[in-house]
Structures are given as C-alpha cells and as structure tokens.
Write a protein that binds this DNA or RNA. Sequence first.
RNA 1: GGGCGGAUAGCUCAGUUGGUUAGAGCGCCUGCCUUACACGCAGGAGGUCGGGGGUUCGAAUCCCUCUUCGCCCACCA
Length: 926
Amino acid sequence: MSARDAITDIPPQYDHASLDAERYAAWDRAGIFRANADRSVRVGGDRTPFVIVMPPPNVTAVLHMGHGLNNAVQDVIVRWRRMAGDETLWLPGTDHAGIATQNVVEKALAKEGKTRFDVGRDAFVARTVRFVEETGGTILAQLRAIGASADWSRTAYTLSPDLSLAVREAFVRLFERGLIYRGHRVIHWCPRCLTSLSDEEAEFHETTGQLYHIAYPVTPIHAGETPRSIVIATTRPETMLADVAVAVNPEDLRYRDLVGRTVRLPIANIEIPIIADSYTDPAFGTGALKITPAHDANDFDVGQRHNLPMPVVISATGEMQGTGDDAARIPAELVGVDRFVARERIAERLRGMGLLVKVEPHHHAVRRCYRCDTVVEPRLSDQWFVSMRPLAEPALQAVRDGHIRILPERWEGVYVNWLENIRDWNISRQLWWGHRIPVWYCDGCGRITASREDITRCPDCGGPVRQDEDVLDTWFSSGLWPFSTLGWPDTSSDLKAFYPTDVLITAPEILFFWVARMIMLGYALMGEAPFHSVYLHGTVRDTKHLKMSKSLGNGIDPLDVVQRYGADALRYTVIAGMGLGADTILDPNDLERSFAAGRNFVTKLWNIGRFLLTNVGSDPVQPLERIGPERLTSADRWILARLDAAIAASDAALGPSRPKAGVATWAEAERGAGLRLNEYTEAARSFVWNDLADWYVETSKNRLASNGPDRDVARTVLIHSFDQALRLLQPIVPFVTDELWQRLPGRRPNEFLPVAAWPVRRSPAGADSAADFELVREIVTALRQLRGEYSVAPGKTVDAIVVARDGTRATLERERATIERLARVTLQIGDAPTTPGPAAHQVLSGGHEVIVPLEGVIDVAKECARLKAELSALDKQLAGLTQRLANEQFVSRAKPEVVQAEREKAHEWRARSEQLRAKVHALCGA
RNA sequence: GGGCGGAUAGCUCAGUUGGUUAGAGCGCCUGCCUUACACGCAGGAGGUCGGGGGUUCGAAUCCCUCUUCGCCCACCA
C-alpha cells in the first residue's frame, strides 16, 4: 500500500459521529473507569486513591451546558489522575430533588385538573417514583456522550434504599446528640409549594414596592385629651391585622411619653400597647414600628421578649384567615382574600378613614421561593432544625488552617463569613417527595422518638405512635453525599478505601446549599473533612453575559454541539477557556464561531496523526532509549526539549493534586496552586501545533523520505513526541487521542490511552540542547518575512546569505539543508557583511545578519516603480491632510472628534511614509 | 446597606511575585490547493491595558479615587 493510498484511507477529518460512541463502548467493555477498592493504599493496596464525587444532577434533569462544563472539568481532572497512576474513582449519581421533582409531577397533575391532595400521599409518591423511573437518569446516559469517565457501576441516587438508610442514620445520630431539635418560630413559607424553606431557599429579589405610612390613633387616657396618633411605616399593610404592639426606641424622645399607653388598631379595631424596644431604629420612617410576631421573624423576637400574643391572619395558601379568637381580627369581607389583594383593600379602607398618611415608593428586597419564584410568607410554625453553630466550628477551622482549600481563594472569605453568621437550618419540608422524617410521636405520653427502624409502639408507654408527616430538605441527603455514596454507615471497603475524597468541583451558587453542609456533616459524622479541595468554576453565559437558561431561551444544548462538532470539540473549547473561577461566555446564536477552536484543533491533531501513520509506516519503531544521543539531530534535541517543557508546564498548571504526603493541610505556597485548565490546555496545544506540527514535522519530511539510519531516528523521535503529546491531551480530548493512539506502531491489543502512563520529563536540565534549532527557526522566520515583504514569488528558490557569528559557522553548515528547505533558499554562509547590490536584509537578535539579494530575483526596477508610486500616492494624500490640519478654519469649526481622528490618521500615514521611504532607499538607491 | 469580582486587539479571554517590543483563539488583510490538514500554510494589520491621580529608575501589574457591568451577603419595617 503506497502512502497516498493510506491517506485516502483515512479521511482528512476526524469522524466523531461514528468513532466517539465506538470508543466509549470499548472503554466501557474494558472496565477502565471502574475503581478497585482493594488497590487503595488505605486498605493495604499499592495505589494512592483519587476520588471525586459528582455533584448529583436532579434525577429529572436534562443535560444543559452547565452540566457540560461541570462534568468536563471533573473528567479532565479525573483522567489526569488516572493516567498519573492513582486508583481513581469518579462517583456519579442523581439527586431526588424534593421540591423540584414534586413540582414537575404536580404540574402534570394540574393538567389533569387535580392536585396532590386529590390523589393522596401514597398514590402521589407512587406516581413520582414511576415518573423518575421513566425519565430519570437520562442525564447520566447523556454524560457518556461527552466522554465522562465515571464509574457507572457505583451510580448512586439520594433516594435509593442504601442512601435512605444513611439519611436516617445521620438524622438519628444528630438527634441523639441534641443537634436536631423541634422549634416553634417564624420560618419562610412558600404559599404555592405549601412548604417551609431554609434561609438559602428563600432568595432575595430587589423590587420597588410601596411604603405605607399609617396612623394608629392613640387611645386617650381621659376625655378631652387632644387626639393623637402614632404613624408607623410598613410595606405590608395586610399584616397589620395581626399587629400586637407598636414599638419605639427607648431612647426616642418623641415617643417617650407614649410608651405604656395603647393605640386602637384600625380595621381590626382592638387595643394594642405601645412598647419600647431597642430593635426599633429611630431614623427609619417615623421611628415607630408595628409588631406582627406571627408574620415577621424580627417581630417574632420582639414578641417573645415582651411576651406578646402571636395571632396568625394569613393562611398556608396566602389568604387572609384567622383561627379561634384571632378570626375576629379580620373583617368578613377580607376573609379568604389573597394577601396581595387584601393589601390594596386595606390601604383603600385606611385612606377612607383618613388614616393613610402617605404612600411612597420603596426599594427593597423581597424573598422568593427558589423553585417557583412565589413571594415567600414568613409564617409561625413548628419545624425541625439543625443546630448549626457546633457543626460550623470544625468546618470553619478546616478552611482557616488549610485542611480544606477553596479555589479561587476569594471564595474562602465568602465561606468563612457565612459560617460565622450561620443560623439554624430548617430541615423539615411539608412535601411528600423525599425522606420521611424518622420521628414518631406518642399521643399517650407525649414522647418523641427518633428511630433507625420504623416503630409502631411508644418505647416508653407502649401506646400507639404516629410518624411525622414531613420529609427532609433535599439538601440534607445531598450533604451526606461524599460518604453515603461510599456505603456509610457500613464501613466496608469502599468507605475505607475512598473516604475522604479529594476535590469537589461545582459552581459557586451551591457553596452554602451543598458544599458547606457536606463539610459540616463530614466532620460531624465521619470526623474528617470530606475533601481537601473545593474548585468553584464559573457560570455559562451568553454574549450579553446573561446566565444560560431554559426560560431565557439562550441555552446551548451540549448534545447538539456533540452531534455537530464532536465531544472533543466541545470539551476542548470549554476547557481551553476555563480561567480559574471565570465565567464561560458562549454565543448560542453562533455555534460555529463558539466551537470552531475546538473543532479545528481536533482536525489538526487528526491530520498530524494522518501524516505520521502514512509516513512512518508500520515497521517496528525503536524506542527512544535505544537511540544514542549522538544520533539525534538539532531538531530532535529541540523537540524533545520542547516536549519536556510542555510536560513541565502541564504539571505546573494542573498540580499539586493533593497536599504533600503525610501532611493533612495545604502549605501556604500551594494553597492557590493548580487546576489552571486553560494554562494546561495552552501548554499542550502549543506544543503539538506550534512546535511539533509547524516545525518538527516539517523538518522530518525529507528525513522520512530518505533511506538510511537517520530515517529511523526521525521515526523514533516523531512517534515518541506524538505519543507523549497524545497522552498530554487525553484528558481534554479523549476520543480523538485514543483513536490515533490505537493506530500507533507497536500497540498491543487492549491497551487504552486513558489508562496509559502520564508523561514524565526525560531530562530535567536539557534546556540548552534546543539552541541550535532555535537559531534555525529564527533564520527561517526572518527569511520568510523578507520574502513576503518584497513580494518574492512563493515557489521561487532564491539565494540567501547568513552572516555567521563566532562559533556558529559549523552549526549553520550542519543546518544548511534544513534552512534551505524550509525557507526555499540557496544558502551562502558568510563571515562579514557583503554588499551585493539591491537586497533585503534583517539583523537577528543574536547578531546574525540575513540577506536576500534581490537583483534578478524580483524585477527590481518594477518593484521600485511600484514602491515609488505607492510612496508618492501616500505623500500626496498626506500633504493634503497636513494642509487641512494647518487650516485654522478647519481646526476651529470642525467637530473636535473629527479633527482628532484626522490628526491620528496623519500620524499614522507619516509613519507609514517613513517606512516606505526607507525601503525605497534600500532597494532603489537614490 | 456590607463585601467580592470584572473592565487588556473587532469578539472571547491569558498575562505568575512590578522589569526589554503586552500574548492566544476566533475575526480581518495579503499571498499560497508546498504530495497531513483551506477546519490548513506563510506573512501581516490591529491595543493611550475603563478615566484621573500617586508610589517607583521602571506600572496592565502596587496605592487612592471616579465611571461602569456583574455576583454574593443582609432582620431598617
């Protein structure tokens, strides 16, 4: 088979559509992504474990660019460590996603005109299970399409029997240690989801609302007293029906005489006291504050301090409603009215009564449900809480003393600040989809029992018990993820072999929701940090810097990209642009442009391989170690030095992968180091493209075409360099690299690049051996520049003179053929500058002078004429411009920016004219 | 209200502890189908490093300030 036939045999573009899936299937069959717990040094094996737990996507999620980015990053890190020889485990899984999934199913029910209450709890849960079975987990299958090298045999699910056991164990342990308790207080309530929310789930949204100033008439002490009133300011007039007091600051002289007296609460028409409490800010509004303990967390505190009643006037669904005696506070016509409608009506009524002093626009932040965007209602209720302070302490300490680092480091401050001000975590949800709270109440004796097993009788009195109706916050189970997925509480091999894990890779949005809680629960239940590094990557945004989302319609479907350009192109593009913590900007309207870099790179790589495979041939290739150093040419030494540099740069950009052996904390110098994926990508890219392809492959062409011993040297170095380059690039573009690697000579069956050894530098101090070929490159580049500058025909071989410096003559003689070939010249090596008539010349940085005689090469007269004509035209234009700028009329009357632009243009033209004049002078003499 | 980040070539971004001429990809211009690659090759144009002030022999880099975009946190109703 001739070389040409072989070329036509391999298409000029990498065929990702057919090859990617085949490659993944081969990896899968070989089981190379499956971790072997027995090999972990922690259980007596021979390998250091390296573990990443995948942030579990929602079980019903469909792959979007955010997942694509997150998993591409994880895969690169995991693939790097796998090649480096670690026993690598990337543990995948999904999250049952309590509210999110329940919402999806409720929406489906709504289409049938039903609510979850119509179908009942058991049927609803059964239906959700079915829904998850049908659609759930597709995202994990989709991750394979982008090449995720996860250990699918260990796929976990937060609501699986195993993990549910872990959740129950965690709850009971924390309960027994007094860290989980039942609290009666104001929490965030979503009137649409009908559940309480944690602080993190009630997100602030800036809005411009209205601030209502309402006069509460002060009840006169004796007849004939001048009528007075106290004006309060509120954004939520509807809650006034639940007011129990008006509070003023004890230092506030304006109201001092009123403290202890009462006001008549309008509409509700009841007497409430005026109290003094330092919570009230005299400078805000009127300095008087209505106190509504059941509908405001702060007012609740005030209410408790003053032992005030706590009437509730808004129902779970957000309508005006009271119970018992408190029902009397709500006028009949407002009962059952939506809270926002009631706000309007109450304002109307107050206006009618002359008690609405003024309404002014007010900019403030309103909390909304993070799942359905409904304005959250503060609501007094009984909930389960985790006592966070004791949990936060070790988590705080861990980051402070370097047991855990967070990259980029600026997030450490955010993390610390949050933990320092942490408040107790409401973990009960009034939902049906999730882990039922393992608590039973005995109505007989009142005992509350948290139990690992379901119970039917009270352990104290033997009476019947009923289980708590609520489920746990979905983030409670996520918080156990780094060890629940490894089998905890069972301490069998996986947990021992792989906990703690290494790096946690996610987006900053869930730093509090998830990362901080994993750290806290890791310490609380495992006594150890769940990982030593947290890597927070950026967000995927469009060109307007808006976050990509389904609702905005500005998303990019990663599978679409995979289909068009291949998984490698997607991965390369995303990873190459992965500045530490920086957002990734992609244009959803121009996929071609967004992913061209990746696609082009894959094609380039493929074509280098194509050249190699057709020119190196299939004869055995000697390993590099068998080639004596004296047989290496300058180009060989150079490319091997460049390879060493690329390996060093890649290692420096990626590592260190963990704190130094035997040390549990990060050294200050290494705390912020590594995980620079963009730098690693650039090091590998420029090596393979700018060094290997642009120079080494070019110089090797004639060597490969020749016969004799040097041909074998070239084959060896070429194969070695390319093999190493493929290894360096495997984590980024695993498909095309393995596809090529499989075809390299000497490959044995069932070898796979993803489990081949990571490159190691040959010679730590071999830098200077690259100097000779560097000189060649410099001379060739200079000659090419001169040719271009003087319009020398591309195909024409011309004479060239290089003036040698001390000691380089022999080198130049040796490299003559290479220079002549690459620059298309016939070379003379001179000792001193000569003056061969019209010539192009350039002085190089090392002092070498490069000269190309032009007599007879180009038509000097013609080129002179051309240049002169160009110069004269330019000068003419310049003269006109100069004249205009000298004209005072123009300068004073024209728009300043126009004048400025003309000045700049003149400046530019003058410089160009000077350059051209010098060139004309050199070429044409006079 | 508090804190953080960004502003560098037409676009998307790199620029390590201040140190020759500020880089890459995409786009653009010129010329090339040079027997691996036109998704390519060779050459080239393009930047007062957001504005102003300061420190320094020297600043994209350090300090102050302003403008602007974005993010996080927050119990002034």
